[in-house]
Amino acid sequence: MVDRSHLKVPKPTPVDLTKLPLKFPKIEIDYSKCTVPFWCKKCLQACSQLVFQVYCKQLARLKESDPREPGTYEVVTVRRDKCNMCNKCVEVCPEDAITITY
């Protein structure tokens, strides 16, 4: 085990703690409707603030997933702190799976 006690580990602080807690929009995704997000990707492309991210739920050794198969990928809201509630994702979603509340 390397001794790290002498190291001066940098701790940059971009977040102003005095302003917390902050309130962000709540974005709900209905996963029974949104099943092929990696193939569809309309919300990812529409969002100017890059709030959404998509990832493979079935990561496994020696296996490549097909994004056309329902349920292999899932889109999630990550950077809700950036959401400006422009509602473009709601408009663009072909399955009406997204709802935003504040």
């Binding site: 977040v15 917390l20 990832y55 990561l59 899932e74 702190d81």
Partner: peptide, 23 residues
């Protein structure tokens, strides 16, 4: 990766959720 497929993403989500809760 198998145990936590969305690892990186979950970390970022957790930070945003925590910002809503408080310092």
């Amino acid at each position: 990766g198998e145990a936590n497929p969305g690892g990186y993403i979950n970390a970022e989500r957790a930070l945003v959720d925590a910002m809503e809760k408080g310092p």
